[in-house]
Design a protein around this nucleic acid. Structure first.
Lengths: 351, 351
DNA sequence: CTGTTAGCGCCTTCAC
DNA sequence: GTGAAGGCGCTAACAG
């Protein structure tokens, strides 16, 4: 209950019969030569006293925190996986990751978390492009904290050095292509306006896909947020009326699952009458019935790249593999990097 | 690129023409009386210089971090929601929450995160009971860091002051009751051994439920990890053979969904032939077809209680509502608190 | 009301 | 190889 004041480096030094500098030296295993006897004594004292270094003091002294900050909209699905994976990647460089959820792209939370992270003097920042305001980002970068964005589109080059994005536009084009090839003569993109930039990317790609692969197809962009899921399906069916199978490409798997259930309820057969492609490749897309075709996100690659770029900005030495990764993926020009999603074909489009 | 050394309190003092103590005073709004002119000057200087307090220095000086640590197995589903909600709760007390994922109950990660948190001198810890080893927990508590567990069963009283648990056992009893009342004469619990204590609790409750409500029912506990999902369904069907509707209660909604899809595939009708109850009340349980009955977790209540108990241990003043909450829920004796789950009836059991 | 001063615990030259 | 000493930036008495 009562906090009995934890032992400090001074206590350890006393216990081991050496000076505090020596203790610090053995603890931080620098390139300083130490007598093995000294090392032993110190380690014993540490063990004995249950010494644990005070991070605040160490950070203050070194003027580095070896801490990185990550701001994401929430912990669910892709973002959670991203956080977990990034944590592992930066750990390999000796850094620790502090994760904050902006509670659904809420700018006030974002602001708070950012402020906190900066007070902690994090050595670098990884932010979700959609959870950040331009102003705070500019400020951060202006103050000199290395920052890399992920899934941020259309950021001016002068405020963001590098954005590592998933190529939703390309995936959307592919979705149209797949649906068209499977014989859909009418195609719908069921979006989520609140998905912001991520939704815009999909719309853009969808329209490009239509132009490229199915210029004559009946098509439309419907917002599931506006129309509701039922409204979306109604509208989609109305548009495709009698023109053979209807293809629906959705903002994410969750929406696809809702549409799938609705089809079940109404006795509409999937994939015979309606074909679905989702996005995110969530667990349930694989085990629903019928299973839902989707796009898998290269989270491992993305986090690897984010980590490498950030470490480079911080001035850390990169491993060979990291170097190679950057060579392979960094665009020769520009400040945006697009990673391809992987299409996973399942029963909802299999004819 | 070059970090131009952020302004310190000294710079602000100089700029404002006051002493550093004064700056510290206006910044920390203590019960110290300040001249409004002084305040203005300081705030202006802060604005001017873009001053941001160095958390490490402040923590070191105050010997408090106003930081709390949370260790969970992963960010998905319930845990993610728990983290987000707890963050809000403790923020109301002026604390910040650092969340760490133990990457699936991996003890080495747990150890690492714990060590880090302790080095940061967090003022308190919230840990998932299943992600912690007894040894490290004992050590932490022994060193005097306030700790509250959530979903930890069977912890010796001498190492854990309080555990705030979801009452999976009671929910499992209820599941049996519901299935039995709906007319199931055979009932299965499809578990996940790797769920550890959480699974044990369900098994215990399931068996008690059988004894209490349906002593004559054919029943069994099957582990989906051992048998696979298909194996589980086969086994369940074999046991219930021809004895009317089969009730399956699952470890979680994910497993329930898998079983549901399998039923679809084999043309087994849900709920006519098989009735399902899941656990977690995940998004997809509500929108699958048919929708899956499940148990909703009182995350808000749980996080409220965890926050209140921890704040109390730290010695923070509680609000009236928090006090009341503790009065209502704290057990008169013992060190474990059980919160009821809420049954959500859906189509998978509706006859 | 404001300023002076002594740490907080650790790291890091720089002598020895 | 090891130790002494001066910060790191801020807070908290305590004077004034």
């Amino acid at each position: 209950m009562t906090k009995p004041k934890q032992p400090t480096i001074v206590d350890v030094a006393k216990e081991a019969g050496v000076s505090i500098a020596t203790v610090s030296n053995v603890l931080n295993r620098k390139n300083v030569p130490l007598a093995s006897e000294t090392i032993r004594k110190v380690e014993e004292a540490v063990q004995q006293l249950g010494y644990r270094r005070n991070a605040a003091a160490a950070n203050l002294s070194r003027r580095r925190s070896y801490e990185l900050g990550l701001i994401i909209p929430h912990y669910g699905g892709y973002y959670g996986r991203f956080a977990e994976m990034l944590e592992q990647k930066v750990f390999a460089f000796g850094y620790h990751l502090s994760v904050f959820s902006a509670a659904g792209m809420n700018p006030s939370f974002e602001q708070r978390h950012l402020e906190l992270l900066l007070q902690r003097r994090v050595d670098g920042l990884v932010c979700h492009g959609l959870a950040m305001t331009k102003e705070s980002t500019r400020q951060v970068v202006g103050e000199g904290t290395p920052l890399v964005l992920f899934n941020g589109w259309g950021w001016p080059e002068d405020i963001v050095n590098m954005a590592v994005n998933l190529d939703f536009a390309e995936a959307s084009r592919e979705a149209v292509k797949r649906l068209h090839e499977s014989g859909c003569s009418s195609m719908i993109y069921a979006g989520r306006r609140k998905g912001l930039g991520a939704n815009d990317q999909r719309i853009e790609g969808f329209m490009e896909g239509i132009r490229a692969y199915a210029p004559n197809a009946v098509h439309a962009v419907i917002d599931a947020g506006d129309q509701g899921v039922e409204g979306t399906l109604d509208e989609a069916l109305r548009l495709s009326q009698g023109r053979g199978p209807l293809g629906i490409y959705t903002f994410n798997d969750a929406l696809a699952l809702e549409l799938l259930s609705l089809c079940h309820e109404r006795g509409i057969r999937v994939p015979e009458e309606v074909r679905l492609i989702g996005m995110d490749n969530e667990f349930f897309a694989g085990v629903s019935y019928p299973s839902i075709s989707s796009f898998d996100m290269p989270v491992e690659l993305q986090t690897n790249l984010v980590a490498a770029i950030l470490m480079q900005q911080i001035g850390e030495d990169l491993s060979e593999t990291s170097e190679e990764l950057l060579h392979t993926y960094l665009p020769p020009t520009g400040h945006e990097l697009r990673l391809p999603l992987i299409y996973v074909e399942r029963q909802s489009t299999r004819v």
